[in-house]
Design a protein around this nucleic acid. Structure first.
Lengths: 133, 133
DNA sequence: ATAGAGCTTCCCGTCACTGGAAGGTCAAGG
DNA sequence: CCTTGACCTTCCAGTGACGGGAAGCTCTAT
């Protein structure tokens, strides 16, 4: 299977598939002409990577997940720990963004948004409110 | 004021302050010896940038905000539009992360997480559940 | 005079790709 | 047999917003 077909089958761009080879995530066989040759297992792994990346796991997480996936004797606790850590990172990021959202929406609501020059958003950025607080 | 003092006064690392000069955000005066020389207005602008970056605005947003800030005749509507767009981006990102969080937490809860090898998380990643659905 | 802190520029690395150039390979049609 | 065009190869550069560190100049204090 050429890389174009692997692209179709896995849903990952060819560029990404080559990149995954560069960093040693998935190294396919090669034909005599130098073309990459992907087998059924390779396609399965690419789909695995696509799904894991889609869940926000980093490349290094994916590397660990793949090796756990290939280890028939792995403990599910190891996988769970990895996923749990990632879940925490996501929750932290959500909290951070919610803080930003609240601050921003307060400012946006306070700004009348017409043709006049006075603007609570710029006042906040310039530190006017910091002294007021 | 040398860059070290500007660092203290603004709260931005010297590296970042130099970077902002590289990209033309804030270009300070220079002394005869080649040292950067930051004045009161510069410090104010650096603090402005720090606050705007802290609210998650991109560098290009900051560039626009600075120029609006310096334009005594700007319309507050322009600032509000910029902030509103950014607010939307943040809300979209929050939604996306919440989707990831829900999917991940479902998987983490389904995984018993002990020494046994069977693991719903890896099953999901490998597409086993996709065929089930 | 010298030590050490602070300043300068310049280049590389981050993360996970994406775009593009230059060139080799293959299948179909004339 | 030749050409065209699709597909493949490698390599290089850029993304955003810096951070680390090297090599070398300047200032201050002793």
């Amino acid at each position: 299977m050429n890389i174009g077909a692997a692209e179709q089958a896995s849903g990952l761009p060819a560029k990404t598939i080559r990149y995954y080879e560069d960093i040693g995530l998935l190294i396919p066989a090669r034909r005599d002409n130098g073309y990459r040759d992907y087998g059924r297992t390779d396609i399965h792994k690419l789909a695995f990577l696509k799904r894991a990346r889609g869940l926000g796991f980093s490349i290094e997480d994916c590397r660990a997940l793949m090796s756990l996936y290939e280890d028939r004797n792995r403990a599910s606790a190891d996988v769970r720990t990895l996923a749990h850590t990632h879940l925490h990172r996501i929750e932290d990021k959500i909290s951070e963004l919610q803080g930003l959202r609240d601050a921003l929406s307060t400012l946006v609501e306070a700004c009348h948004g017409d043709a006049r020059p006075d603007c609570p958003i710029l006042d906040d950025l310039s530190g006017a409110l910091a002294e007021h607080a």
